[in-house]
Design a protein around this nucleic acid. Structure first.
Length: 952
RNA sequence: GCGGGUGUGGCGAAAUUGGUAGACGCGCUAGACUUAGGAUCUAGUGCUGUGAGGCUUGGGGGUUCGAGUCCCUCCACCCGCACCA
């Protein structure tokens, strides 16, 4: 029998052209349709590596959904664009001399081809690129909005800085309710007497975008400052280069002002819990109190601490400052200065890498603080476990109810007072909010939560401390000493004061440049172009550029009205589209992009530019498609139990024991001649592998998936190991969707990616199962065409049973699509097609709706079949079929009949029989008679259309 | 350590509100058509037992006529944060 096949290659290019010519997926500008749906993919950074099979997972899912929504009559906005500014393009320029604009554009062209190959239904007329001056004009404009506003903490919103100035002129800093970098007190007179530069400096404490000298994460190797979320374990997330703290004049964004709203705003969002948790942790809210501890014998000096447990204050037996706390040199008596300094110096070196460090090291400063309630003297220590940049950099130590304080006190023989009685809670640990206070005077006998409130009231009443909510969230650094980013729309006058550009002067375009090296002093490459930095005498331009997240923090709004020259998007367009109904993307943006976007959106909301508090109503994190990481170790010689492993870069020498190092990551998939994945190295695969990496021509291989094996070949040996890991260029395991598509077709590729499992789950790429999907498409095709490629669809009435199969498929798949369960919808298609083949069904009355049903998943095949069915429009402009209950209603039902919950038989009965009839007929079944024997029936449970159960 | 999540055949996985566990696909076994099979079609396939039957959703316990699903407890793995005051 001839294999039924369809020529997917021809079909794909035919319909790609058709869609382009007919603008099939243009979003309608007609905003009268009240059913709008905005479905967005996280736009990619167009890297040099191109797309791999992992990227399309989310794209295909959102594409299926948007095709479905369109067919349901929604006006769908489904755009795509490029996050085009960023470090890698500049790094590439440094290495190769290719201008970032050029390499970025080249990459974009390549991405576009790949995306089109997959058959994604984006409205490309709305494409945005963050490096387009027409786009970043508005990025700069939004930055200026931030600069021009401050956060009013009583109104809980952004307010023009001009109102703050009015307030200062009238009242000075009295009754001010504004988020600020530092609190200062001044009168109206003081304010009015300030010089411009003093006023400017003061206002910088309040602006939402502000410039200040501060410690920043400086990465020497990258020649730039990085935001907190770009740094992990003291190395840069990109490249893994060391990051140190450096003092620099930088722009920052006051995201801390929005901490509470960013936290509470999440409650109503349909995001998955783990993502919300990541954001909550990042914001890191803690409620407690600031308390001042006077220092004995040094008038006017006090230690400010933050605590979430003010109830434990009677258990304070010592204080601890961070070793680099500002007060340390002040309070330390002369005779101890030297030792204390030495300790601080030693711990400084440790802090560069303190992850996972648990220590009880510390030293007494020689000074004493005064307990605010008992007036007792308590020693002040310094210790590594207190961090300068968390809280106030100082703690009141309560060894009686804090594990770290307890360990520290034990180590250094400091007194411990038990202040919590947990005898009623044997399972409670130190620090748990269970138990009652003891040895605590006015708090004695109170449960912890009540005691906290009572102490807070008490502290405030006697002005010993204040209630305060603290957040871990830090303001976001917004300056990069880099070329490939948005220039700041500001200039500095003779006094160095920042001045904003007018909207009419935007965009401030990035000048052309051919030397991208950062200056060794940490200044941006832009600083070298005098014509740009000093456009006029007395005017200096900012030479830093904005970070990568600037352009991506609002791009979803631009899609609503991408070509608008006068506004970032028209009021009408924003009013119509409102917000993103569904956002699909990776979880790696949890604390970066998603946090900044929400922050910017809230500011735009406060200023009346957008109608919603949150930009992304529902969010789905697609899982990662992993690759198989193969490591090969080539063993050179052996003597006295030592082997020499030759890796790509260095020869490493290791003792052969249970632990084996991985040296050269290679991937063996898709290296065999016919492109068939083959992770067990076969002879063909081996030949291809050696062709690919000729340096291994003389080696002998023996592999076994997942375990080490070795074969000996003279003095050489080769070990391999397979494991699941990231798909990445450096592991040589990137699978290009183009290869899969050319072999199986785009429809097959799309369906297979969806069939792999739930969208949100990560899974290794494995082509084993793709044949099943391919087979399904051939079977589908065979319902319409026979082996001779003849059209066999008839206008006959449907055969008995086929409408039932069709309609239950419509019902099931519609429900599955709505809940984003595409793997199960595909299963249902398979069942349906198999059934129809069994019934030898070729009626257009059945096949027409089936074609429509499959269209979102396999758009190319569906178009071809839809056309063959005699339609002139695109299947995507047709109406998604509704199921008809009439075909699903059954007048009989097969009940499982159970005895004591175990199924023993089954019985098919009419639907409208009474329970008594059901019981009698079921009881009479021979199997049931046997199981019931003569035991008395205690109870009969009949659940209509579910089951019958006899309890004996 | 804290927080979040996941545990179901040889594998990827299904299973509305507790109601026939393992749908669908891969793989495997047998057969058909074939010079051939890495094509196609048919049948079988959780484990165990000749059979009736018994066992089975990470382990243990509970609620229920009935538990993958609810409750308690323990274990394993993954992700995030991490000396967080």
């Amino acid at each position: 029998m001839k294999e039924i096949d369809y020529k997917f290659g021809e079909i794909e290019s035919k319909w790609q052209k058709f869609w382009e010519v007919n603008k099939t997926f243009r979003t309608s500008d007609d905003m009268s349709n009240p059913k709008k749906y905005y479905i967005l993919d996280m736009f990619p950074y167009p890297s040099g590596a191109g797309l791999h099979v992992g990227h399309p997972l989310g794209y295909v899912a959102s594409d299926i959904f948007s095709r479905y929504k369109r067919m349901c009559g929604f006006n769908v906005l489904h755009p795509m664009g490029y996050d085009a500014f960023g470090l890698p393009a500049e790094q590439y320029a440094l290495d190769t001399g290719v201008h970032p604009a050029k390499s970025t554009s080249d990459n974009i062209t390549r991405y576009r081809t790949q995306l089109d190959n997959i058959g994604l239904s984006f409205d490309w007329s709305r494409q945005v690129r963050t490096d387009d001056p027409n786009y970043y004009k508005w990025t700069q404009w939004i930055f200026l909005l931030l600069y021009q506003h401050y956060y009013d903490t009583s109104e809980q919103k952004a307010v023009p800085i001009t109102e703050l100035i009015l307030h200062f002129e009238k009242n000075g800093s009295n009754h001010i309710a504004a988020a600020s970098s530092q609190h200062s007190s001044f009168s109206a007179e003081n304010w009015n007497q300030m010089t411009d530069s003093e006023k400017n400096a003061m206002l910088m404490n309040y602006r939402l975008a502000y410039r200040k000298v501060g410690y920043v994460n400086w990465c020497e190797a990258l020649g730039t400052v990085l935001a907190n979320d770009e740094v992990k374990d003291s190395v840069s997330e990109r490249g893994g280069f060391p990051v140190v703290q450096k003092e620099m004049l930088q722009w920052s964004l006051r995201i801390t002002a929005y901490a509470e709203r960013l936290l509470s705003g999440m409650d109503a969002l349909q995001w998955n819990e783990s993502l919300k948790t990541i954001q909550r942790n990042w914001i890191g809210k803690s409620e407690g109190a600031f308390i001042d501890f006077r220092i004995d014998n040094i008038p006017g000096q006090s230690i400010k601490i933050f605590t979430t447990r003010p109830d434990t204050i009677y258990g304070v037996t010592f204080m601890v400052l961070a070793p680099d706390h500002d007060l340390v040199p002040i309070i330390t008596p002369d005779n101890r200065q030297e030792q204390v300094e030495a300790f601080a110096e030693k711990s400084k070196n440790k802090t560069t890498n303190r992850t996972g460090l648990k220590t009880t090291e510390g030293m007494w400063t020689g000074a004493y603080a005064v307990h605010p309630l008992s007036d007792e003297n308590i020693p002040i220590w310094i210790a590594d476990y207190v961090l300068k940049d968390y809280g106030t950099g100082a703690i009141m130590a309560v060894p009686g109810d804090d594990e770290r304080d307890h360990a520290f006190a034990t180590q250094h023989a400091l007194p411990i007072v038990s202040i919590i009685d947990r005898s009623a809670f044997p399972n409670a640990d130190m620090g748990d909010h269970e138990g009652v206070l003891q040895n605590s005077f006015l708090l004695n006998g109170l449960p912890i939560d009540e005691a906290i409130q009572k102490m807070l009231d008490y502290l405030e009443k006697y002005q010993l401390g204040i209630r305060q909510t603290e957040y871990k969230l830090r303001d976001a650094n917004f300056s990069r000493q880099r070329y490939w980013g948005e220039p700041f729309p500001v200039y500095y006058d003779q006094n160095g004061l920042p001045n904003e550009l007018r909207t009419s002067e935007l965009p401030l375009e990035l000048p052309d440049l051919d030397d991208f090296k950062p200056s060794p002093d940490g200044r941006s490459p832009l600083a070298r172009i005098d014509s740009w930095t000093k456009p006029q005498p007395g005017i200096d331009r900012e030479t830093d550029t904005m970070p990568g997240y600037a352009g991506s923090s609002w791009y979803f709004l631009r899609y609503m009205d991408p070509h608008n020259q006068n506004e970032f998007a028209s009021k009408g367009a924003i009013q119509y589209w409102q917000d993103v109904d569904l956002y699909v993307g990776g979880i790696e943006h949890a604390v970066g992009h998603l946090m900044y976007s929400r922050f910017w959106h809230k500011i735009l909301f406060d200023l009346g530019y957008v109608p919603t508090q949150e930009p992304f109503k529902k969010l789905i994190n697609q899982g990662m498609i992993q690759g198989i990481v193969e490591s090969i170790l080539l063993m050179k010689e052996r003597d006295n139990g030592y082997y020499h492993f030759v890796s790509a870069d260095v020869a490493t020498e290791r003792k052969m024991d249970d632990t084996i190092i991985s040296a050269i990551p290679v991937h063996i998939d898709f290296v065999s001649d016919y492109g068939q994945p083959d992770s067990h190295l076969t002879h063909d695969g081996l030949a291809a592998f050696i062709k690919w990496r000729p340096e291994y021509a003389d080696a002998v291989f023996e592999t076994k998936n997942g375990v080490f094996t070795a074969s000996q070949f003279g003095e050489e040996m080769l070990l391999t190991k397979s494991e699941v890991g990231k798909m990445s260029k450096r592991y040589h395991n990137v699978v290009n969707p183009d290869d899969v598509i050319s072999r199986y077709g785009a429809d097959c590729f799309r369906m297979y990616e969806m069939f792999l499992g739930p969208i949100e789950q990560s899974k290794p790429w494995d082509t084993m199962g793709i044949e099943g999907v391919s087979k399904f498409l051939k079977k589908l095709w065979s319902l319409y065409f026979n082996e001779q490629d003849e059209w066999i669809v008839t206008s006959d009435p449907p055969k008995e049973g086929s409408l039932k199969v069709l309609h239950s498929t419509i019902k099931k798949t519609t429900e599955d699509i709505e809940r984003f369960s595409f793997n199960t919808s595909i299963s249902q298609f398979m069942i349906c097609v198999n059934e129809l083949r069994k019934l030898d069904e070729h009626s257009s009355e059945v096949l027409s709706p089936l074609t429509q049903l499959i269209a979102p998943f396999a758009p190319f095949v569906a178009e071809e079949l839809w056309e063959a069915l005699g339609n002139t429009n695109s299947v995507h402009t047709s109406r998604f079929p509704d199921f008809d209950d009439e075909y699903l209603i059954e007048n009989v039902f097969t009940y499982p009949v159970c005895v004591n919950g175990k199924k023993r038989s089954e019985i098919t009965l009419l639907k409208d029989v009474t329970n008594q009839q059901i019981e009698e007929q079921a009881k009479a079944l021979p199997e049931i008679v046997k199981w019931l024997e003569d035991k008395p029936i205690k109870k009969v449970i009949i659940i209509p259309e579910k089951m019958i159960n006899f309890v004996v």
